[in-house]
Design a protein around this nucleic acid. Structure first.
Length: 281
RNA sequence: GGUCGUUUGGCCGAGGGGCUAGGCACAGGUCUGCAAAACCUGCUACUCCGGUUCAAAUCCGGAAGCGACCU
């Protein structure tokens, strides 16, 4: 049973209710709730909630040792195997589309690039611009070159790094057939009217700030360059603290967080519209 | 009441006789590993009235709003 919905739509409460009813456990598909250092800003379920139903993939990793989708997929499948020995149904919840897709359809095994290669390509991207990586891709994987968004440096960089480490075209590697899952999936999408969702977001942001989001962010400030900290709720504080001589009227962190959370929710809605119907099996 | 300045899209903001500035917001979308990321598309405005001109947001009058100073 997969529970989906945009951020702040009430997935957590719904999942717990359902898991209690089914007397089962919950596995999370939330790319930020993995991290033990992030609690308030990622709306981690409360200690009470966590105690009421066994949860998995919550606060299980450090931001210094981030997950990637493939290892998440592997861990989750292994865990599900175990859980299905004790339960007929397991509840999955989360809002991270790529992680949800990995769980439901699977994602190809691709070689990890060396950190040096990644850094080199990143540097090239920043200093020489997309064109330099584009021309590499054109040679390494002409098929993919013809289908990517040629303006999207991040995607091109990824394809190039995979081609180089694998010694094969990226487009070929990602064509590995999807493996059917040894379980069936039913999805439940939580929908709310836009205005209501927006109010819930705003309220939740106020709430987070009231219970100490700023000091949580302050603690993580030294780690702000790590990927998991490129997250709504933290990055807005970091941006504020980074600009010392800011007389300017930049919006308050809480307003910025509300807006960015809304943007995030809209992206989730776009994804849900297209993909949610395809996930059930 | 007078003088000077100002008025650009939902907001900020450049330009300154013919050529869609840009940014944000808003709306829609793309996507097989940093995904709460990255990227794309749409949104053609110049306060009003009159004049000059082949052509005015741009020049000239006037009106209104706003601001500063003066009496």
């Amino acid at each position: 049973m997969l529970i989906l919905g945009p951020t702040a739509s009430g997935k957590t409460a719904r999942a717990i209710e359902l898991a209690q009813h089914l007397d089962t456990e919950i596995i999370s598909c939330d790319s930020r709730q993995f991290y033990s250092e992030m609690e308030i800003g990622v709306a981690r379920p409360s200690p009470n909630e966590l105690a009421s139903v066994p949860h998995h993939f919550i606060a299980c990793r450090s931001v210094q040792d981030p997950y990637n989708v493939y290892t998440y997929q592997q861990d989750a499948l292994k865990l599900l195997d175990n859980l299905f020995q004790q339960h007929d149904t397991v509840v999955a919840v989360g809002g991270s589309s790529l992680y949800i897709e990995a769980l439901c359809h699977g994602i190809a095994l691709l070689p990890d690039p060396t950190p040096e290669l990644r850094a080199m390509l990143q540097h090239k991207l920043h200093t020489e611009g997309v064109e330099s990586l584009r021309s590499m891709l054109r040679v390494l994987d002409p098929d993919y070159y013809n289908q990517v968004d040629l303006a999207n440096g991040v995607r091109i960089q990824r394809a190039v790094e995979v081609c180089i480490t694998a010694g094969k075209p990226y487009s070929q590697l990602i064509q590995q057939p999807r493996r059917p899952r040894p379980f069936s999936i039913k999805t439940l999408v939580i929908e709310r009217p836009r205005e209501e969702l927006r109010n819930r977001i705003n309220q939740r942001v106020e709430q987070m700030i009231a219970i100490g989001l700023e000091s949580e962010a302050r603690k993580l400030y030294p780690l702000r360059h790590l990927t998991p900290l490129n997250t709504v709720g933290y990055k807005e504080f970091f941006a504020l603290w980074e600009q010392q001589n800011n007389y300017s009227s930049s919006p308050s962190p809480s307003e910025a967080i509300k807006l960015n959370t809304w943007h995030y929710a809209k992206k989730q809605l776009t994804w849900l519209k297209k993909n949610a119907p395809l996930l059930s099996t």
